[in-house]
């Protein structure tokens, strides 16, 4: 069997990643950029969980009489990825607060954004 069942999930997760990328690249407001990063993280996490999908499977908690379980590894990986995403978001918000206290605005300078 191929990924046919999962195709809508892939489209959704890739759409989230693309929306996040667009937000990161086009927005100037720090909070909007942080939100975009969050959207991107969500897209990636959906993709990883989808990688562990087994048709007809159930949650991998042993109850004795169910034969098919989902792949547990992606779930474990996503748990880690979510916590890491939370940490990065929290730190980014702290940086945003610091930036606001120093400059009185949450908008990045024009030159500050895309100065390569």
């Amino acid at each position: 069997m191929t990924y046919e069942l999962l195709q809508p999930v892939f489209v959704i997760s890739m759409a989230l990643i693309a929306i996040g990328l667009y937000g990161v690249m086009s927005k100037k407001n720090i909070l909007k950029i942080i939100l975009s990063i969050g959207i991107m993280d969500t897209g990636v996490n959906i993709l990883i969980v989808a990688m562990g999908y087994i048709p007809g499977g159930t949650a991998p908690i042993e109850n004795g009489n169910y034969p098919v379980y989902m792949d547990p590894v992606p779930q474990a990986l996503v748990l880690t990825a979510i916590v890491i995403g939370v940490s990065v978001t929290a730190l980014a918000l702290a940086v945003a607060m610091g930036y606001y206290r120093k400059t009185g605005t949450l908008e990045l300078d024009d030159e500050g954004v895309m100065k390569w």
Partner: peptide, 13 residues
């Protein structure tokens, strides 16, 4: 803060 924020954005992507 600006440098750190840029680092955070690229790092998370």
């Amino acid at each position: 803060f600006e440098g750190a924020f840029k680092y955070i954005v690229l790092g998370s992507v």
